[in-house]
Amino acid sequence: MADFLLWLEATAMSTWLRESLSPLAFPTVLTLHTVGMGFLVGTNAAVDLRVLGVVSQMPLKPMERFFPVMWFGFGVNAVSGVLLLIAYPTKAVTNPLFYAKLTVIGLAVANIRLLKKHVFGDPGLDEKQIARKGKLIAGVSLLLWAGAIAAGRFLAYTYTYLRAADWATGL
């Protein structure tokens, strides 16, 4: 594993992302990761709030048109996240919190699919009260995203090894 990380960190891609003085390298990738998060979590949170009964006079079905905004944010963050991982792979994979973050995001994304199926899949959606199941999905969604954000923020401050060389000497 340490050998693989040493190799990855020595690749041109990883080195450029980490060490380039160009603002297009690490700072831009980090910025995209933040903007993507805003659109993904923000859009999902707005749908969750409506499902939970905020502004219940507003029809819910048309909010489905905002789902591509969520997937756009997710796509931006999947790509920028992989690039951040390539830049500092050891920092991430030696921190248990990294795996917690990925797990929570996996659950949150699976939960979006549940929302789509169980809430938006109902043809009579705007003719009746939203079932408790739908509200549970929306509530869980808010908690999962808050957890993903917290894990992401703490990741920046709780790492043990920044680079593969540090890890190899620590082993």
């Binding site: 933040t34 998060m37 805003g38 659109f39 979590v41 923000g42 859009t43 999902n44 949170a45 707005a46 905002f66 905004v69 995203w145 808050a146 954000i149 917290a150 992401g152 923020r153 703490f154």
Partner: peptide, 18 residues
């Protein structure tokens, strides 16, 4: 504090942005 700042940001984008 950063986590709260990011949650606030998400609420802004999710309401004003939409």
């Amino acid at each position: 504090l950063e986590t709260l700042h990011f949650l606030g940001l998400s609420l802004l984008i999710g309401t004003i942005g939409l």
